[in-house]
Amino acid sequence: MSVTVRLPTPLRSAVGGERTIEIDASDLTSLQREIAARYPELAARVLRDGAFGRFVTVFVDGEDARFLERNADLSTAKIVEILPAMSGG
């Protein structure tokens, strides 16, 4: 099952300038594994010890991935979004 991953500007150079990439993944764990295997430059920026690092926030159809189980089903997900972790009201 292919998932669309949208990337912010600072990460696009790691995937040849693309805004989005398609990745075969059924859950977050396999998504991380596929990123590591297919996009090592992207992986170097967003993964730490094989998992999304604390300086990025990952959303699955708008839901913060930290609130999802690691094996949460991605098969019905429309889009996965990776953003720098920033906030401040």
Binding site: D64, E81, L83, P84, M86, S87, G88
Partner: peptide, 25 residues
Amino acid sequence: YDAVNRLCGRLADEYGWGFVNFTLR
């Protein structure tokens, strides 16, 4: 707020605006 923040993270990427707590952080 975190939903607002996510939207702005996206918009900051699409518009050349100075998002004070993103692109000017």
